[in-house]
């Protein structure tokens, strides 16, 4: 579904991604794990059109999307749920969700989409009229997820959904993400919470200093010596 072929991305003169390749198929959760500054967020920004790769190709549903602006990427069917949630704090929960359906095609179906989101995340229905900035961290993450789903994406890229959340909340968010996969939405999950992520992901890539150093099925990676030492502290 999504194929990334040998991309190189720079921040000014500093190279952040080196010859990076990976793929995500329909109905799977693919995780990208790695420490701070490894290049995870840079990769997502490159995919969603905020950064332009210097070389390489990104292909989504047989169409090239590298170097395309953000709105074109959303239109192609990829939604990006950014790190830190990036909500519109002084807009109501409902308005935040409606913004997710901004694109022409999604806007026409925003009523149905809204109902679907409320069914999936009932707590948002109860908070509909409240300003997004006044919600708890977990609820805000749910708004961010809901907003990302309003555009009816085929692929959801989720950046650090667990950051700053209580463990119980993290469990709930991850459970919701598994539910999305079961509905047929491909998930590209970027996380620092390695153990938890590998438990729900089908496959995973490990990124370090802008390069993929390890890839494979989650169960395999969980038993890999390197992972156990570096990320799980075993």
């Amino acid at each position: 579904m999504l194929q990334i072929h040998n991309i190189n991305t720079f921040y000014g003169k500093a190279q952040a991604l080196y010859d990076l390749s990976l793929s995500v198929e329909a109905s799977e959760i693919v995780a990208l794990v790695g420490s701070n500054g490894a290049g995870k967020t840079t990769l997502l920004k490159t995919l969603s059109g905020l950064l332009r790769p210097a070389s390489g190709r990104v292909v989504f549903l047989e169409k090239r999307i590298d170097g395309r602006p953000s709105y074109a990427v959303v239109e192609a069917g990829i939604s990006h749920i950014p790190e830190g949630r990036r909500l519109f704090p002084d807009m109501s929960v409902r308005e935040n969700l409606e913004m997710g359906a901004y694109l022409q095609r999604a806007w026409k179906q925003k009523g149905e989409s809204l109902e679907e989101i409320y069914r999936l995340l009932p707590v948002l229905k109860a908070r509909e009229g409240q300003l997004a900035g006044t919600l708890s961290g977990g609820e805000q993450q749910m708004v961010a997820l809901g907003r990302g789903l309003m555009s009816k994406p085929r692929l959801c890229m989720i950046d650090e959904p667990s950051s700053g959340l209580a463990p119980v909340m993290v469990d709930e968010i991850f459970h919701i993400i598994e539910g999305l996969r079961d509905q047929g939405i491909a998930i590209f999950l970027v996380e620092q919470n390695v153990r938890h992520t590998l438990e729900i992901a089908d496959r995973a890539y490990v990124i370090e200093n802008g390069r993929i150093i390890l890839a494979g099925k989650s169960e395999q990676l969980l038993s890999e010596e390197l992972i156990r030492k570096a990320y799980l502290g075993l």
């Binding site: 905020l50 909500l87 519109f88 409606e98 913004m99 997710g100 555009s151």
Partner: peptide, 23 residues
């Protein structure tokens, strides 16, 4: 219209507005 909502979202957070697909 959706453009009205989009204008408010630009005032709130321009990058998030771009993520939502606003030009």
């Amino acid at each position: 219209s959706r453009y009205g909502l989009a204008l408010f979202s630009i005032g709130e957070n321009e990058e998030a507005a771009a993520h939502a697909g606003v030009h």
